[in-house]
Amino acid sequence: MDTEFIVEYIPHYVEAAKLTFRIGLIGIVLSLIVGLVIAFIQYFKIPVLKQIASAYIELSRNTPLLVQLFFLYFGLPKAGICISSEGCAIIGLCFLGGSYMAEAFRSGIESVEKGQEESALALGFKKRQVVGYIILPQALSVSIPALCANMIFLIKETSVFSVVALADLMYVAKDLIGLYYKTDEALLMLVVSYLIILLPISIVAAVLERRLRYAGFGN
């Protein structure tokens, strides 16, 4: 183990980790939005959009991100649509994450009993109020564990972004292996970087999950 080498190249990893983190964050926020929109399309059963939404979910859940990225980055330019590496990465992550988030929201919404919705309507709530005051608050707390799992999943998925020429952690590690043949050091730093990024999120998710269970909503 060459500690000098490790110290020298830490800044490279920090830069790469920042990139991973930034794209991951943008991707997660966008996919949360997409997921919520899709979940509501399915909940309100909006005619045409509903079919599109379920087609999208099946398509995105059954194809790997790597293939989606290849199509976006190498395929689409041939059809005259050029997207930058970062654009591809974000679109890919959002396309993939949207469906996972939608499923998480949907299972949350389904967990709220139909009786509650009917009682609320009987009490004179508007449909929008039922969603805002009764369904969403309960659905969110139920879907938080799944949402957290999806966030970790999406950050892990960012590891393939080196194929669209983004200098992420994998890219730096591969570079160092190729340039200096310092495989052990490069891989060690790679593992440590991912642990530093993901372990706190995983712990927060576990704590959150435990807290939420205590909250309970009078079953």
Binding site: K156, E157, S159, M170, L187, L190, Y194, L195, L199
Partner: peptide, 9 residues
């Protein structure tokens, strides 16, 4: 926690 690609590497 480790991305599968890291494990492969």
């Amino acid at each position: 926690i480790m991305p599968q690609l890291v494990l492969l590497f």
